[in-house]
């Protein structure tokens, strides 16, 4: 197992419940993400958030992003005793929304300016990210002129520039071919490892892809009664620590038999939800 320790709690979901018209959607959801510290290298955190369709992933996603308040419980970040606010956690939605009326550069400057008061510093930061993500030559283009991959990178940069190291990604692997899937996985890891505190939560149905980039997996589901009927209200039914299982930070991990065995295990658990 790779040498590592855990630092402070970066994100905490504390007994979050959500009801709509008296109908429970989420029930006492609790989870936390801690800073993973590896000697000699900068390592961010990546959590894969899995669950069947309609289980309430999007609802929890919106609560963690600070876009919707929960009925009870709260989400805190960086140990601050205050519920998360919109803007503290970046959100990269499935279709990579950007302001269509602004150019790539203008989109990014706007985001950087929201967090950085010094416009020169904000500009330099944007230019650095554009170079880092190979988008320098696209700076003057409008979002509609970008390819899917370029748009994805632009949306990620926009959110990183503005958030406090947190990024929620909704279905980033959806509809991608094998090559694009590998690129997206590499991109997620690259973004995560840009800063020790960078934390990415990937909401997805793709168990293999999630397991290949994540250090932890959260599996969301519902409890069942004695007759096997689903009880209302979802919560995180299983947490997998991929570091403990020695399935993390290893190149070509997906080709390893133990990784395949792990994916099979998660899939079996998934089917039982």
């Amino acid at each position: 197992m790779a040498s590592h320790t855990y630092g402070k709690t970066l994100l905490k979901i504390d007994n979050v419940s959500l009801e709509y018209d008296g109908r429970p959607i989420l029930k006492n959801v609790s989870a936390e993400i801690k800073d993973v510290i590896r000697p000699g290298c900068t390592t961010g955190q990546v959590v894969g958030f899995l669950g069947p369709s309609g289980i309430g992933k999007t609802q929890l996603f919106r609560i963690v992003a600070g876009l919707n308040p929960p009925t009870s419980g709260r989400v805190t970040i960086n140990g601050v005793d205050r519920p998360v606010q919109a803007g503290q956690v970046g959100v990269v939605a499935q279709d990579y929304p950007l302001f269509e009326h602004r150019t790539v550069l203008s989109n990014l400057l706007l985001a950087a300016g929201q967090k950085e008061n010094d416009s020169k510093v904000a500009h330099d930061k944007v230019m650095q990210y554009l170079t880092e993500f190979e988008l320098s030559d696209k700076a003057r283009l409008y979002p509609v002129q970008l390819s899917g991959g370029q748009r994805q990178r632009c949306a990620i940069i926009q959110q990183i520039l503005c958030s406090d190291h947190f990024l929620l990604m909704d279905e980033p692997f959806s509809g991608l071919d094998l090559l694009m899937l590998e690129r997206t996985c590499a991109l997620i890891q690259k973004v995560a490892n840009m800063d020790e505190l960078n934390t990415i939560i990937v909401v997805t149905h793709d168990i293999t892809a999630a397991a290949s980039v994540a250090d932890h997996l959260w599996l969301m589901g519902r409890d069942h009664d004695l007759n096997g009927n689903c009880l209302p209200g979802s919560h995180i039914v299983e947490t997998y620590d991929l570091i403990e299982r020695d399935l993390c930070w290893e190149p070509n991990i997906i080709t390893q038999p133990r990784f395949m065995e792990f994916v099979r295990e998660v899939k079996d658990r998934f089917r039982g939800l």
Partner: peptide
């Protein structure tokens, strides 16, 4: 989603209106 995007970029609701409704629909 357009409103959410603006909110995730730390914009207050009046700024959201300016960015999404006024500029965005020009």
């Amino acid at each position: 989603e357009s409103f959410d995007l603006a909110r995730t970029l730390r914009m207050g609701e009046w700024r959201v209106v300016y960015e999404v409704v006024v500029l965005g629909q020009a």
